[in-house]
């Protein structure tokens, strides 16, 4: 056993380090439940900001929901927005400090229910911000109520018999709708349940921040996520449930990558 310990200790040396958490992520213990996708996405954002060297120029906007305390974990300046208003708050910040990087971070209730108007109009204006959208099809923080993205038949605390379209309407594919808006520069849907998916999502977030620097419209990254507490499944089973049920409704991949539309397409012909 000691031989093995010696061999391990030989490997664990600074010169052999291949992965350590970004220094932008501090040591505060995250309040998220075990297995929560938020933690992974937080880490990816921190890594992107660190790798781009834009810590001093980046302002985050946290939502109301589980991620309200995102500001506790990533060591940049933050503003905490009212429920659903993060895109408006981010707009305010970006408009008066256009040289900074501004991103909003919202869940499905925040972005796709109470904040639908703010979301649509920020994207339609082509605000040069990054919007991160965590879609886990449930209200996590308040105890697992139905979200606009809750699947038909999905059991939540306010759809205890499963979401019924007669009563509750349909799961909202807001990302597809946003991709239609001329102000959207880059719209993508990713996930973080496997190492490969995590690496893709990181690339997408990096790309979104790079698009912000180009000022060619809104960069929108949805991350289809799990909520094992809300779904009442283990983290591993949540990932399986997500792959089986969420992905068919919320297929992964880029929805738009063209930059915002040419204004000439929309211009009046004569005054």
């Amino acid at each position: 056993m000691s031989v093995l310990t010696d061999r391990i200790n030989e490997i664990i040396k600074p010169e052999n380090l291949v992965y350590a958490k970004s220094p932008l992520l501090n040591d505060d213990l995250m309040h998220y439940c075990p297995g929560c996708s938020h933690g992974v996405v937080h880490r990816l954002i921190a890594e992107v900001i660190e790798e781009m060297g834009i810590q001093e120029q980046t302002i985050g906007v946290s939502p109301v929901g589980c991620a309200v305390f995102a500001y506790n974990y990533i060591d940049i300046d933050w503003q905490e927005a009212a429920h659903g208003r993060a895109p408006a708050v981010a707009t305010g910040i970006k408009r008066v400090m256009p040289e900074k990087y501004v991103f909003s971070y919202q869940g499905d209730g925040d972005l796709a229910a109470i904040g639908t108007a703010e979301t649509f109009h920020a994207v339609n204006r082509g605000e040069n911000i990054v919007m991160i959208f965590i879609n886990n099809a449930i209200y996590g923080m308040t105890g697992g109520q139905m979200a606009p993205t809750t699947l038909v038949g999905q059991i939540t605390s306010t759809t205890p018999h499963g979401r019924d379209v007669d009563l509750n309407g349909y799961p909202l594919r807001i990302t597809e709708l946003l991709a239609q808006l001329p102000g959207a520069a880059y719209v993508t849907r990713q996930s973080v349940q496997t190492p490969g998916a995590v690496r893709k999502t990181k690339k997408a977030i990096r790309k979104a921040f790079e698009i912000q620097a180009k000022k060619i419209g809104t960069a929108f990254v949805e991350v289809v996520s799990t909520c094992s507490s809300g779904w009442k499944l283990s983290p591993v089973d949540s990932n399986k449930w997500m792959e089986e049920n969420m992905f068919p409704q919320y297929p992964l991949g880029d929805l738009k990558d063209t930059g915002r539309a040419d204004a000439e397409l929309y211009r009046i012909k004569a005054k």
């Binding site: 302002i59 906007v61 503003q79 927005a81 009212a82 208003r85 408006a88 708050v89 981010a90 707009t91 305010g92 910040i93 970006k94 408009r95 008066v96 400090m97 108007a117 703010e118 649509f120 109009h121």
Partner: peptide, 20 residues
């Protein structure tokens, strides 16, 4: 100067910009 989509949005834009 920005015309927002609602009074709700405009006051929260003020929040963001004032926070800066």
């Amino acid at each position: 100067v920005l015309q927002a989509e609602s009074e709700i949005a405009s006051i929260h834009m003020v929040y963001g910009a004032a926070g800066a």
